[in-house]
Simulated scan of single mutants.
Amino acid sequence: MSDRRIWTLEEEDVMISILEGIVAEGGRCDTGSFRSGTYEHVASKMREKINDINIIAKHVQNKMKRLKDEYSIAYDMFNTSGFGWDDTHKCVTVDGPEILEAYLKKHPNKNYTANRPFPHYERPVIVFGKDRATCSMAESAADALDHIGLEHEESNTVGFT
């Protein structure tokens, strides 16, 4: 079985719902990472909920990593001057090509682009918490200080905790 697969919106929604339940039940370690066996548990639950789905733990692991990366990028774009959010199309918008060009010059390894739909944007914060950094996405101390105020403001205005 290949490690690559194409996910439907329904499958993403089911996976995120399962992960939200795991988080609500305390399924993350003190470090914020998920407990051992989470990927297999999610794959098993998905097989129960979706008929004829052919999914393994590695698929879940890969999708979770990609979702976290996409969320981190969309979050950073959304909180950068010149970017916004289109609630109708569920995507980050950009005020002009020069803004996007400047952003991509500063952040060349981004996997998410403005104007591409991200229908689950608001849900990953529940799954991943406020720690958006991954090995390839770690923030500098200056970036972290800049984001502290934004995350606090977001949690007070959007209802995230």
Rank of each mutant, 00 (worst) to 15 (best):
R4F: 02
R5H: 05
R5M: 09
I6A: 11
I6L: 09
W7F: 05
W7P: 06
W7A: 12
L9E: 15
E10D: 13
M15G: 07
M15H: 09
I16L: 15
S17P: 01
S17H: 10
L19A: 13
E25N: 12
E25S: 13
G27A: 03
T31G: 05
S33V: 10
S33Y: 07
T38W: 02
H41N: 10
M46A: 02
E48G: 04
K49N: 05
D52C: 06
I53W: 03
I53S: 10
I55M: 07
I56F: 01
I56D: 12
V60L: 09
Q61D: 10
R66N: 12
R66Y: 06
K68S: 05
S72P: 00
A74I: 05
F78Q: 15
F83G: 10
K90E: 09
V92Y: 02
V94M: 09
G96M: 08
I99D: 11
L100H: 08
Y103E: 06
H107V: 07
N109I: 01
P117K: 14
P119A: 09
H120Q: 13
Y121P: 07
P124G: 05
V125F: 04
V127I: 11
F128M: 07
D131F: 00
A133R: 15
T134L: 12
C135D: 10
C135A: 10
S140P: 03
A142E: 14
D143V: 05
L145N: 11
L145V: 08
D146V: 07
H147D: 13
I148R: 15
G149R: 00
L150T: 13
L150G: 04
L150Y: 02
L150H: 11
E151N: 10
E151W: 00
E154K: 13
N156K: 11
N156E: 08
V158L: 03
V158R: 11
F160K: 06
